[in-house]
């Protein structure tokens, strides 16, 4: 820019407040965490001895950590697949599911209402989502929406104590996560599908291709870029799960800790006695490495040749 006089005082005034806040409250804790993960720091004592990779070795012998890790991997693989499939399916119904006059491809009636409704869970606090779903899966005499609904449609024998059975817990988390994320992707894919020219669909229709073929051969390839971004983003979200698990199942990770995830494990190690800060930080480092690896791998795998619209 041509204006040189007074540039540096002005730039200092712009950047210093933000940089100081970010540096002190976010960036420095991350750097400190890397160091703490290499120490045996525990409790509110001042002793902090360098122990190298001991904390990382300790994880291999910690069954609860392996449970949490396994659960995170389930979330990582299952939630994105379910959410994206549901998002693509519903978005294509909303946007190209309608047939106007003379077979023209249009959106269905009320499509904007659907988008508003589907998106809503995205803006609700995860804590509220967790509390509500805790009651959905509760026993019939304590709210128990699901069990009461099953009873009402004559499937009462399927009713279960959903949150009391260790083997169900992580799947309950999968369902709730998918429920709360799907609407977001419906809206995102809708935006992508809106930009696909209508005449492509009409040409396919004239060639006699079925809806499913159209979906598979036209819609999906043309929104693949968006799917790819969504996949990476969902994978990162699935590495979290702290609020959902700690509120719905408790900070112990539910019955027998079977619904535990790494985030909750970090919290427990750090903030309940005996406060293993070093170990907690080491689990945090593992989470960081997993997140980085997952983003890189997913971006690699999903890179397909781009379809360019002339």
């Amino acid at each position: 820019m041509a204006l040189q006089r007074g540039k540096y005082p002005f730039l200092l005034a712009l950047t210093v407040p933000g940089a100081v806040i970010y540096g002190y409250f976010m960036f420095s804790p991350y750097l400190q965490a890397m160091w703490i993960s290499l120490t045996d720091w525990g409790g509110y004592t001042a002793t902090m001895n360098f122990v190298g990779l001991d904390n990382f070795r300790r994880m291999i012998a910690d069954p609860q950590l392996l449970t949490a890790l396994r659960n995170n991997l389930i979330l990582l693989l299952v939630v994105p697949v379910l959410t994206l499939a549901l998002g693509l399916f519903l978005a294509s119904m909303i946007n190209v599911g309608g047939r106007g006059r003379a077979g023209a491809v249009t959106g269905v009636r009320g499509s904007s209402v659907y988008k508003v409704v589907y998106f809503f869970p995205q803006v609700v606090s995860v804590v509220i989502v967790a509390v509500v779903w805790k009651y959905v899966f509760a026993p019939a005499n304590a709210g128990g929406v699901l069990n009461n609904a099953l009873e009402a449609i004559g499937l009462g024998r399927l009713a279960q104590l959903w949150l009391a059975e260790p083997k169900y817990l992580i799947w309950v988390v999968v369902i709730v996560m998918t429920w709360s994320f799907a609407g977001f992707y419906v809206v995102m894919f809708s935006a992508a599908m809106q930009s696909i020219p209508r005449d492509i669909y009409e040409a396919a229709l004239l060639d006699g291709s079925s809806r499913f073929t159209t979906f598979r051969k036209i819609t999906v390839p043309l929104v693949w870029d968006t799917v790819q971004v969504g996949w990476v983003y969902l994978a990162i979200q699935a590495m979290d799960g702290f609020a959902l698990v700690s509120v719905m199942l408790g900070t112990g990770g539910g019955v027998e800790g079977a619904g535990d995830v790494l985030g909750v494990k970090v919290y427990r190690e750090a903030f309940t006695p005996p406060n293993n800060f070093g170990y907690a930080a080491a689990i945090g480092v593992v989470l960081l490495l997993l997140t980085l690896a997952v983003s890189l791998i997913f971006m690699r795998i999903l890179r397909r040749e781009r379809v360019e619209l002339a």
Binding site: Y22, I36, L262, A270, F271, A280, A281, G284, L287
Partner: peptide, 24 residues
């Protein structure tokens, strides 16, 4: 400066929890 901020997008919040408590 730009990349230092960008790095913040990649870090999971759980990594920061322990030092954050003491920093605050």
């Amino acid at each position: 400066l730009y990349y230092v901020f960008l790095a913040g997008l990649m870090f999971p919040v759980f990594l920061a929890l322990v030092p954050l408590f003491f920093v605050v």
